[in-house]
Amino acid sequence: MSHLSAETLGRARDLVALYPHRRSALIPLCHLAQEQDGWLRPEAMEEIAGLVGVTPAEVLGTASFYDMLHTEPVGTYVVAVCTNIACMLRGAYELLEHAEDHLGVRAGQTTADGVFTLEDAECLADCGRAPCLQVNHRFFGDVTPEGFETLVADLRRGALDGEVPHHGTLLRVRRTGGLQVEPSRVEAERAASAGAAAGRANQGGKG
């Protein structure tokens, strides 16, 4: 019984077909599964392992390395508050503390209603608008404690639905053309790249 839905599985197979080595599709497939479930469920990791020809331990090893892949359940909105130096100097610790009080959870936890997961993050590269935070990887800058409360309220009532998709959603506008590649073209490109690699090897280069 497949844990991945028929649609997800179809997209997963398309992705696997794109790469010369099946395992190259590992991270894209983790994102797909996360889009389906909001986080990476063990069943999904096992299925991905089968699709790309690695072991479940290798999928978990890869997924647990990356911050954008969650191997534990998270809320609809993952709020990552930057506490790196620029934001810290502009009141990030106070902001995080306020966020904890306001949401009633500590950093790393999810609210009981499953809507918000709060994280403290290293530099998010929006120092010009410190203190900054991300909600599902969308930026919000110059966030004050009051601003945070407004943001939470807006998210709850759906005022930002157009701007902040639910956690795991890959793209607001689905790519339609990219994955539908003619199999013949994939084969041709693979052959060409294998030829090029062989050529490099013959010259004694590092392939």
Partner: peptide, 10 residues
């Protein structure tokens, strides 16, 4: 050939 044990986390 059975990678049942691996590095996790970072």
């Amino acid at each position: 050939g059975e990678a049942q044990i691996d590095f996790l986390g970072r």
